[in-house]
Design a protein around this nucleic acid. Sequence first.
DNA 1: CACTGGCTATAACGCCCGTCATAGTCTAGC
DNA 2: GCTAGACTATGACGGGCGTTATAGCCAGTG
Lengths: 209, 209
Amino acid sequence: MTGVIASGVRRGSTAVAKSSAPSRERIVAGAADLISRRGLNATSIRELAKHAKAPLGSTYHYFPEGKGQLATEAVRYAGGAVARILRRELDAGPVAGLRAFLSLWRGIVIESDFRAGCPVLAVSVEEPPAGEMPPALTAAAEAFEDWEQLLAEALRKHGVDGDQARGLAALIVASVEGAIAMCRAKRSMQPLDRVARQLETLIAGVLDG
Amino acid sequence: MTGVIASGVRRGSTAVAKSSAPSRERIVAGAADLISRRGLNATSIRELAKHAKAPLGSTYHYFPEGKGQLATEAVRYAGGAVARILRRELDAGPVAGLRAFLSLWRGIVIESDFRAGCPVLAVSVEEPPAGEMPPALTAAAEAFEDWEQLLAEALRKHGVDGDQARGLAALIVASVEGAIAMCRAKRSMQPLDRVARQLETLIAGVLDG
DNA sequence: CACTGGCTATAACGCCCGTCATAGTCTAGC
DNA sequence: GCTAGACTATGACGGGCGTTATAGCCAGTG
């Protein structure tokens, strides 16, 4: 299996894209997966193409602006996929959403045998060119922001004060992202499990406090 | 300025190393800084040497096993530097230690204008070669483990139950690491500030709860 | 049938990579 | 002064990088 996020290649398109190109989406999804493993700068376009079983020429056909464009779309793709899941599961309340968020990442780390993580984080930890703000990095910031807003809104809907809700949402996203990386280094799920436990009791306490 | 961690190049050596080589330490410290910006695979030995104003040949003189050895020492160097600060400040209690931990990373992110982060995290998010466990990744896991243990022990010393202490320590390290990355993506200190607030009230509550 | 336009195949461009080998320089101790 | 050994300088090695150019294939339309 090539990654939980990447396996969600379905119809539905991201923006205007009226037609076609099943391989285009395959490339984007594969890029998200590969970037989540290797990091952005360490992943070559040739690897990306091979991973998606697409010819190198096709990547420049679909993404004429090159690697940056592909990376940006990959980050948006992963960010959107996670946001969709989060939005759906948060309907059953903040704790249910939190659990879905946690088990989503848990699945990615375990199924990849500690080799894959979060592509959004991977893009976030690479230095941008002096004084610039590459689109992929902006997309990463937007993904984090989306997740936080979804979580915060769910908390607010369940009676948590606005400021506190934003704070808790940031804590959730940050600690889960950090824990994923720690799990990969330690080759153990303990960090994410411990963080999950702490977050669950914290949220539960805030909700009926 | 070249990074808070890297600027701590002082006498004192890490292990046996009885003598010499000021430039050896400069290379290691510079490597920690550069890796924290660019990531491991994306940082070349030539850049590392130039960054430390050392000739390329010297890197292979001091680190005959090549890039992996240098990366490993850089991770250990950074991990040890943070652990030393943590150990010192935790003497004044868990909240004081937490504050020091937070403001240490805060300084690194701000002084680098959101370009540097945590070298330990940077190494953790790169895929190891199939079935292997590179020494640098092991060093990253050890650094995380050290920080967690220091925090957990301080909490225990102040009356927190053992399991809870380990959980809180994991939450602290994970959320701070994640928040650093989010700050870089957003080019804003808000994530780390929010996480700091949440962690402080959480710890304070646990301590006199 | 010819033709157009989306996709692929292949090769090349200059550049940088990790690593190694070799020869040179400098300094300490005899 | 001379030799040994720590460090530096330089250049090469094969290979992968991002990107571009060019030509070929192969539907679907007229």
